[in-house]
């Protein structure tokens, strides 16, 4: 994906490595970009590097090489110091709703922290109740503690806190995978709606392609640290070009009641999934 000057976020040739007993290259030369008001989905199996990429975008992960820039400026690494105020317009929603909220602080006060971040950047103020309403929770919840809420409610509060900071770019790392099936689609849809209402870009990371199809303008498919396919979501969904994308899509069981087993790959991780296929990139 070619980076253009009006991109909100552009990631260029990003490489992330973890040094343990051996060096693991989690992200291996990934480039992508997000424009304002765009929802980009990042999909792939667990361990494909999508979470590492998300963490690098907000500055939680130090790239081995390559760059992450937001509005043309390099995103600073989240060190021990206070994050520069300008970059609080990048917010993140985490996967596990249980650890997303401080257990000792009331919900309202946590959303207020988001509002403060917006004020510190000179953005308009707001009230925690407004945000609760926007994420579909009763306003009376301001005085609750996290342990009094269900997982789905916690995740909505975490989304409210992130949005209260009035971000330009919202990064969501598997925000719905810990939720009940019946609320997954609605929360994902709500995130899209709220992000776009605010004119923000949304980087939505998920392994659930059915949801991604519902909310993403563009989709990036990652496999073992590399992008194997990318482009307009509908296009990828209807006519997957890369063998891995094809396997991924055909493995999704359709809830149609017909009792058809999804196609299983002949082998675990066949070599062709790793093949580079230029025609599968930047599909329109």
């Amino acid at each position: 994906m070619s980076a253009s000057s009006n991109d909100l976020l552009s990631v260029t040739d990003l490489v992330i490595e973890y040094h343990g007993a051996s060096v693991v290259r989690a992200v291996d030369g990934v480039s992508l970009s997000i424009a304002p008001g765009e929802v980009l989905a990042l999909v792939g199996e667990s361990g494909c590097g999508k979470s590492s990429l998300a963490r690098a975008v907000v500055g939680m992960e130090k790239p081995r090489s390559g760059s992450v820039s937001y509005r043309g400026q390099a995103v600073p690494l989240l060190g021990v110091r206070r994050r520069p105020t300008a970059f609080t317009s990048i917010q993140m929603v985490f996967q596990d709703p249980n650890s997303s909220l401080n257990p000792r602080i009331r919900v309202g006060a946590q959303i207020t922290e988001g509002i403060r971040a917006a004020l510190a950047r000179g953005e308009a103020g707001s009230k925690p109740e407004e945000w609760l309403e926007r994420v579909g929770l009763p306003t009376a919840m301001v005085s609750r503690y996290a342990h009094e809420l269900s997982g789905g409610q916690r995740q909505r509060v975490a989304i409210a806190r992130a949005l209260a900071a009035r971000p330009d770019l919202l990064v969501a790392d598997e925000p719905i995978s810990a939720l009940d099936a019946s609320s997954q689609a609605s929360v994902a849809d709500m995130m899209r709606r709220l992000a776009l209402d605010a004119g923000a870009g949304l980087l939505f990371i998920s392994h659930d392609l059915a949801i991604v199809r519902l909310i993403a303008d563009r989709t990036v498919v990652m496999y073992r640290g590399q992008i194997v396919e990318s482009g307009v979501s509908e296009r990828i969904w209807e006519d997957p070009a890369h063998p891995y994308t094809r396997a991924l899509l055909s493995a999704i069981p359709a809830p149609d009641g017909r009792g058809i087993l999804p196609a299983a790959p002949a082998a675990e991780a066949p070599a062709e999934w790793r093949s580079a296929l230029p025609a599968a990139l930047d599909r329109v």
Binding site: L78, R83, Q91, M92, D96, G114, R116, A117, A120, A162
Partner: peptide
């Protein structure tokens, strides 16, 4: 996560 979320809020 909530500690990280706080840091991301500045």
């Amino acid at each position: 996560n909530y500690v990280m979320a706080g840091r991301l809020l500045g």
